[in-house]
Structure formats: C-alpha cells, structure tokens
Nucleic acid binder design. Sequence first.
DNA 1: AAGCGTATCGTACTTAGTACCACTTACTTA
DNA 2: TAAGTAAGTGGTACTAAGTACGATACGCTT
Lengths: 236, 236
Amino acid sequence: MGEQARQLSRERVLEAAVGIADAHGLGALTMRSLAAGLNAKPMSLYHYIRNKDELLDALVDRVFAEIELPEVGGDWRAEVRRRSVSARTVLARHPWALALVETRTNPGPATLRHHDAMLGVLRAGGFSLPMTAHAYAVVDAYVFGFVLQEASLPFDSADSANAVADSIMEGFASGDYPHLVEFATQHVQQPGYHFGGQFEFGLDLILDALAVHHGASHPSSIRPENGVPQRPGRSR
Amino acid sequence: MGEQARQLSRERVLEAAVGIADAHGLGALTMRSLAAGLNAKPMSLYHYIRNKDELLDALVDRVFAEIELPEVGGDWRAEVRRRSVSARTVLARHPWALALVETRTNPGPATLRHHDAMLGVLRAGGFSLPMTAHAYAVVDAYVFGFVLQEASLPFDSADSANAVADSIMEGFASGDYPHLVEFATQHVQQPGYHFGGQFEFGLDLILDALAVHHGASHPSSIRPENGVPQRPGRSR
DNA sequence: AAGCGTATCGTACTTAGTACCACTTACTTA
DNA sequence: TAAGTAAGTGGTACTAAGTACGATACGCTT
C-alpha cells in the first residue's frame, strides 16, 4: 500500500502538530501522539525539534505567519483593519494558539515581522511614536482579547448557548443573575445571534476613535469629543 | 515542633494553590507541590477537591471574586471604568489566571456575579440589549487582551526591555525589523516607559467612543441626551 | 467500650517528556 | 567496490504528575 511515511522533516512535524492541535486541542498534542500521527516513534521527533517547548514556540510563530501583514505605506486604517480581521480569523482557526502566546515569550521571525509591519503602517500613517504605542496596544489588546473571549465563552451561536445557559441557570435560583438571564434569553438565545459578529463593531469603534485622536484619516461615523472634524460627513 | 498543619479545608487548599501559582507560576502548581505546601500528602487534597480540573476552575472563580464589582445603577461609565481598572490590577497580580480563563469554561458563582453586574450597569445606564452586548464585548476584550499582552510581552519596563531587545536584535541583521528597532530604542527603552501605563489611555478611548454611540453619559464633553427609560432585570 | 463518619495517606497504575544509546541507511571518499 | 561517516530512527527506561483504591487514624456519639 501507499508507503505513508516518507522522510520526516521539521516542516512535516510542525504541520502535523498544528493538525493535531486544531483537531483535538493542545492537550492532545503529545510527543507520542505527534509521532504516531507521522507514523514514527516519539524519539525521532527530537531530530527536528529540541524539545516540546521549542515545538510550541515554533507553532506560535507558524500561526503568526498565517496572519495577513499590513502593507506599510497604505492607508493605515484600512491596513490595520484588514490585518486585524485576518488575525482574528487565523486565531479563531487555531484556538489553541492564544493559550501559547501567553506562555511562550520567544517571538519567532514571523512574529517579529508581524509586529514590525504593524508599527510600520502606523508610523507611516503619521502617528507619533507615543501614539503608535497607544494605537498598537489598543488594537492588539482588542483583537487578542476578543479571540480570547471567543475561545473561552462557552457559547458562541444561539444554538450552543441554549444548552449552556440552561445548565447554568438550573443550578441557581433564577433570581440570582437577573441581567445574565435577560441577556441570555433576550439576546444570546435569539435566532441570529453569533458572538463573532461583535468583532467588527468594536474594531471600527476603536479605529474611529484612534483616527480622531490622530487627526487624520477618516473616522467613519463618530462625532469626536471636542469639535474636531464634525459630523459623520466624511471628513477629507 | 510547632504544629504547623492544622486541619485542611477547601479554603486553605485554594489559598495555598493561589500562593504557589503567584509565586512560581502555574507550572509549579502540582498536586504534589500543593500538598507539600500544606504539609500534607497529595491524596489528602482529594477530600476537598474532586480533581485538578475542578481546582483550576475554583481558582479562576477566586480571582474573579477579587475584582471590584461595578455598582448597578451608578454612572455606567465611571463604574465600568473602575471595575476595568480593578480587573486589570487583579489579573496582573495573578498572571496565571488568564491562561486558565481560556481553558476553563465552567464559570463559578463569582464569575457569574461579575458578568451579571457588568450587564447590569450597562442596562441600567440606558444601553439597549444589542448595545450592551457590543459594549461589554469591546470593554472586556480590551481589558483581557491588554492583560494578555502584558503577560506575554517579554518586556514591561524600560529596564527589562533592554535585555530582551538586545537579545532579539543581535540574532538578525538589524535592518530586518526597522520599525521594531525604532520602537524599541526610541520609545520602549526610554527611561520612563512602562507598558502598563498604556492601559488607561485605551480604556478611556473605548469608553468615550461607547458614550458617543450610546448618546448618554459624558464621554468627556458630551451632554447627555434623552434618558432612555429602562428597568433593570426582573422580568414580569 | 463499640461503632461510625471524616480526614489522612501508602501504594501503585497511567500518561507524558525525554536522556541514552544502538541500529540502520545513504552518501562519501579512497 | 569496500570502508567510513553523518544523518535519521527508534528501543528502553527513568522521572514527574494525576489519581484510583483501599487502608488507617481520629475523634464523637450512643
């Protein structure tokens, strides 16, 4: 039959690792399961990977590599938006990655390139260094935080929410968490609900606010605090 | 000798667990180390905790319990701000907690109470259900994401940044990440730099933007509009 | 004193990471 | 072609960690 196991390689190892993590979660990714998935024995992996920690670092970098880079020089708002949407998509595809980001603090080349590009668009977009720091921090906190919530929220769609909400509520006198109950029944459990849909709202909210602070680009629909450019009337 | 180990209790077990995690990280928290810290043997813990998973769930809830609750009925902006600042402080004090939040999806009572209070202030503040969802998502994504970044960023203060920046840069031609280099040397490595300082900027940016969308409260200089009649929870 | 529930733990099994070393192969180089 | 060598593979076994399964110990009641 079809000679499954051609030669191992770092690439194949990483690929298989991502596959396992995607399919069965980080917990299922053990050196043994990984080896098994490659029709190899555990110890063979150590020719391509120093140890499991290094493997995890490599996985994080691999995920970052999937995120679209913003184009330095383009419209900062559009570019930051695009890469943020991409980041969320990618991280949602590999939910385990976020857990790693927290722990691993050895950024790989893709990660560094990513950060560099983000700083690049902002600087090129006219942000001062301090404002670049602010903007970058806000946007990324939001993006990562959103994904974090998506991952940790027990529910996501209205469907799955029902089960969870029910199970949570049955344990307590329903009067204990009135707002939670209202929120669950009147909003989350409604047909079209999908938590992920919230993402772009917040992203635009933040980008608009940044644009106002920055004084350039086009805040799409917000009236700034102190009569800077007024009206949703497309400034510029 | 001085009778160290008085009776165990769930409370003492949890307390010790938090202590170990705070001091040496989540990785150091094993049933054995935990038992040792309590002058007990591993298996004794299982009288107070069903298994390690349940222990972790309990720890998360314990951390949430430390966060100041917003006061339902108070000025939504001020309350949300206060609890957000508190949340960041608490999570920064227990950096390991965030890693757990991702994994554990069994909210405990403190966690539920927390969510309920947040939804409560927003509703009482006049937010519609959909806007409450938006606001809550944005704010929490930001808060959690910020902490996540704080935790994962290898550097924090200018001091520690130097070492990291140096080590990162030496491996590569310095021309590979020009913006990163500029950012590191011109901003991060400057004397007064402290990543955590960015937090309130972003938080206020978001709260202001929400206030604008909401039309009520005081973003900074906007006058409240028509108070939307609302009635907290308590269906029927 | 007998009995009982609660708390504590000794032992041992299981899963996972990985050190150590042997073996196998393919590719030199003479 | 024969011998040498580097690269790749894996068998064995040790260690750490979670936890099942019963004991055992320690009070309190009756």
